[in-house]
Design a protein around this nucleic acid. Sequence first.
RNA 1: GGGCGAUUGGCGCAGUGGUAGCGCAGCAGCUUUACACGCUGUGGGUCGGGGGUUCGAAUCCCUCAUCGCCCACCA
Length: 872
Amino acid sequence: MSEIPKAYEPQAVEEKWYQFWLDQKCFVADPARVNEKRPAYSIVIPPPNVTGVLHMGHVLNNTIQDILARKARMDGKEVLWLPGTDHAGIATEGLVSKQIWKEEKKSKRDIGREEFIKRVWKWKEKHGGIIISQLKKLGCSCDWTRERFTMDADYLRNVQRVFVDLYKKGLIYRGKRMVNWCPATQTALSDEEVIMKEQKASLYYFKVEVAESPLTPSFSPSGGEGARRAGEGDSPPGGPVTDAEGHVWLTIATTRPETIPGDTAVAVNPKDKRYAHLIGKHVLRPLPSELPREQKLIPIIGDEHVDFEFGTGVLKVTPAHDKADFEIGQRHKLPTIDIMNPNATMNALAGKTLAGLDRFEARIAAVELLRELNALEKEEPYVNNVGFSERADVPIEPRLSEQWFLKYPSVDKARACVEQEDDSVGRASSRAACAQDSSSTASPSQKMRFFPQRWARVYGHWLANIQDWCISRQLWWGHRIPVWRKRVRLTEANSTEELLKWGWDDFVKGNWEKDANKNPDELTFIRIFRVTDGKEVDPKAESLMPIVRETEGDYEIFAATLSSKLAKNLEACGFTHDADVLDTWFSAWLWPFATMGWPERTGTLKKFYPTTDLVTAPEIIFFWVARMIMAGYEYMGEMPFKNVYFTGIIRDKLGRKMSKSLGNSPDPLDLIGKYGADAVRFGVMRSAPLGQDVLFDEQQVELGRNFCNKLWNACRFRQMVGSAGSSIEGEIDPALLTSDDKWILLRLDQSIRELTTALAEYKFNEAAQTLYRFFWSEYCDWYLEASKAVLSRPASETSSSPLTGERAGLEGKNVPGQAGATPPHPGPSDVELRNSPTANLLPLPARNERGEGRGEGNLQQKHSSSPRPSPP
RNA sequence: GGGCGAUUGGCGCAGUGGUAGCGCAGCAGCUUUACACGCUGUGGGUCGGGGGUUCGAAUCCCUCAUCGCCCACCA
């Protein structure tokens, strides 16, 4: 206790205490300890990608969670902060593929599925834990004994269980649809994985000839003269052009001339007077130019979707390569011509010049071809929005393919559970008011709350316009879809035998739904589709079993099952396992309960679900938050969390988003090395106002470091003047308190209140400010300075005062210095303060019954909070 | 094209009807025996523009502007 370094040296102190807490199992949650006096508090970490490396966003996010967790521990709650990582399908697969390519010049296909997955696991074992160790460096007080991974055996099982269940419920279906196809990773993506980017492109105008021209004499081209302004249905100038020989030409504007070979119609708006008379006629598609005339004919159709104003008012329709065009195609029963390969090179249908070219090369080539054909009229620069694959950062290609889709479950409940602005007034600050508000139908206390609340509307809006979720991915790393399929010809003669071979005695007897409750691990569901019309067949209703002559034919059988025995059997009978894996979010959406032992009703689940707070970034509100809420209702019958705090986005001090390419994203570990984790955390918290982006500036961290140093030195001072620590444990005699003492105690009390309120409202920057102000300006600048004067006098009867103040300060703040400089006392505890006379001397904060109001200290340091070595 | 935020001294923020606050930075002094990662003192803003309501507006209403997000099938 004698040699205290003059300046705070965070590394040694932080490591020492973190290890101490781990040794003492301070972060381990035990559901058995939860009772009325010791309520549960829980958070599940937003699992970072296994490929992840700690960045400032993680720092922000996890510091907030840590503060909440430590605060809850100080309030005497049993705290579970459950950590883990996400297998991050596309990201991980891409990373390992790249590595293998670099080292062995082999693609994943060269290596083969099984071996590839082995390699990914190997990679995961070696590098996957990095972010976890980094979170520990940051000081996160997670219960590391419960670390989970979305590919753990039991988690995998849960994912499959949910899949089979939803399949059985009819919410999962297979469909041939337009999907977002990533040509780089060659998989489908959900809408949420596509980000729009502005692209400088060109708008190409090319002309096509109307096949039926010259037209009958009654036709008079409208050419754009006679500008009648008023009235509905007025068309802009322009329109078909008739040449000297009477041939009529249409001009079409497009950004994607390379898709012309895939055009199967040309569309105009039926209300467009310039073109309406041409509907039903045909044009000659210019590409591929080598085709005979009759194969170039495509119809002119009328569709409301076409905008008069845009381009020339004539739209080329490419149903195989554009979402909107696909829909037009559906409406008009147009054929589709897929002219691309999965890697977005052109295939033979694109014509001999384009075949084999990449789509962007093909664009240039197509323009060239049009020019040669004399069909290109002009080219103008144009800026449009192009969807990019979020992961691979290449333009996605709308592509027609067969995928698995999910109709979201429990949507209504998910919508209703989130409190909207008009649900109740004056909330967070006055919880009492909430309880009395009986005007709203749903009980406000039952509602989930978003902070800041405006996200609730965004959430509601998305749910109201929700589209089915494409959940299959053409990847290898992930949860494989537990479906086996086979096409069989069923005849009266073979059917019974065939099915018996599969081991489905029950099915043969007509029991098509095995009782899942009897053995959940056998959960199985079969769907049968008639090949001729694609319709699903109800085997019971249509007496497929036994089969009768009228129902003989080809059937596609899908068996979704959890039973590995059955799966083996099916494979032996020629069934093939679906090759796709599930979207990563299809596992992540189960996170809050799948990590807690579900489907067992474990003690953990009983005590810690629903979780208390979720802290996450707003960019994954749809990806993750919304889906977790739905899954929560569907499988737990309850919301997965009570409060959701949306952090801001970390930006640099110029307000730019942090990104690798800009190089403006500091490495948090460098910062931790330089200033200490507490400094980094404090710095980030100081600039993290609720609902606003965080403008990060290293200067803030410096400030945090200074603050830690201030705390450290206040302790040093106390050690130097104190009489060997005798009084820190002793009673305070109210009679000895000076007015200074009383003042600082009062300020302490007020600060604690402010801090508690700030934290209850998730105003972390205000909490940080309060700490800073109290400790620095009031305690150090005022009170310690004042005490110096007192100390310089004969010490006898005044000796208690600085100590009291010191103690108050420490207890308010939980100083790192204290932790480091004194023997492994678990840090000054709030319990101590609560039991001390100090508490009785002051107008106490209006504490709620749970004893909130004492524990603010965790704000900046992990040192600070809570290490109570053993449970009470 | 819709929706949502933001706009207060150089920077980051607070302030929701009564004559503008905090921190940082700045500047000027300080080797004052806890801390120069410090101490003391100090300058600096017509609260984005315009209009309105009011005795009175940063604060309420309208409008415009700039910046930023999110959603949307305009080729």
